[in-house]
């Protein structure tokens, strides 16, 4: 009885959490412009999402009116998706490089210097994104930097790198510090030693740092909003925001959200099943000995 009540509670909560997502998924399979209005099953929105972006490449250049007239998804949505991915790739790549080298540095620091670096590294993680966004915005304005791709990428690097440092640090702690010295003694340059000795051992941390940075960057909204400038640069989040503010949500965002959700679901399922499988295997090994 107790177990039944507990399970019921859990599933009611889950139902509450998933209800909105389920509605989006269901209504991605109908054509209606307004959500909640079922006009029969159709995969038209999916087709629009995948075809019209490529089919009408020139319209965008004639301004907003032309986009609105075209029947399919506006190219601006495609452009926004492209921007999101490019920015995320560049920002997480630079963050991973910067963060890994910095982690080696911080690891070898001592005392007050180490404390200061760790404190500074914590600031972007504790700062709410609106503060990070506004502070960078004010800096760019004061210095007179035109805001666009570069400013957004710099902003993303600032809040991604701390997580890379956090991912790489445990690997360094596990590592034997003498191997690097040995490489130097055998005539390797510091760069070679880093590349051939340290990198292979911290690779796991670098990869998880990269993945974390990538997902943080893709997901970011507030920081991007403040640093994207007014030259028309949009990422997926800011596009959705602008779209929602105008009143109606572009219907094609429903299939897009569905696809994103499915990808996340599959990825997480694979990762977790893999982890459960691994831990079971380890447990079995322990039992044997």
């Amino acid at each position: 009885m107790k177990k039944f009540l507990a399970q019921t509670y859990i599933w009611i909560l889950l139902l509450m959490l998933y209800a909105p997502i389920i509605i989006i998924i269901v209504f991605s399979f109908t054509e209606s412009k307004v959500l909640g209005n079922w006009t029969g099953f159709s995969t038209r929105l999916y087709e629009n999402l995948f075809t019209s972006g490529a089919a009408e490449p020139n319209i965008l250049q004639y301004g907003n009116v032309a986009i609105k007239v075209s029947s399919g998804v506006s190219n601006s949505l495609f452009k926004a998706i492209e921007n999101t991915i490019i920015i995320a790739l560049i920002a997480s790549f630079i963050s991973t490089m910067l963060g890994s080298v910095a982690a080696v540095g911080i690891f070898n620091l001592k005392g007050k210097k180490k404390k200061t670096m760790n404190f500074l590294n914590n600031i972007p993680m504790l700062n709410p994104d609106i503060i990070t966004g506004i502070s960078l915005f004010l800096l760019f304005v004061a210095v007179g930097v035109t805001q666009g791709y570069t400013s957004v990428i710099i902003a993303h690097i600032t809040f991604c790198t701390p997580y890379v440092v956090l991912c790489v640090m445990p690997k360094l702690i596990q590592m034997n510090p003498n191997t690097y010295e040995a490489a130097l003694d055998l005539g390797a340059t510091p760069f070679q030693a880093f590349n051939k000795v340290i990198v292979p051992q911290i690779k796991g941390g670098m990869i998880s740092g990269f993945i974390l940075s990538f997902s943080l960057s893709i997901d970011d909204f507030a920081v991007t909003l403040f640093t994207k400038g007014n030259k028309g640069l949009e990422t997926l989040s800011t596009y959705i925001y602008a779209d929602a503010r105008k009143g109606g949500l572009t219907p094609e965002l429903r299939p897009l959200a569905t696809i994103i959700f499915t990808v996340v679901l599959v990825l997480l399922a694979v990762i977790n099943i893999y982890m459960v499988y691994n831990s079971k295997k380890q447990a079995q090994r322990k039992l044997k000995f």
């Binding site: 080298v101 540095g105 911080i106 070898n108 001592k110 670096m117 600031i123 972007p124």
Partner: peptide
């Protein structure tokens, strides 16, 4: 020295974390 490898990140953080907060 390896401890100096933190320097680029320190410069980056001063420019894009500390300075922006001072701007506020």
């Amino acid at each position: 020295k390896r401890s100096q490898w933190a320097a680029p990140y320190l410069v980056f953080m001063i420019l894009f974390v500390v300075l922006p907060l001072l701007m506020i």
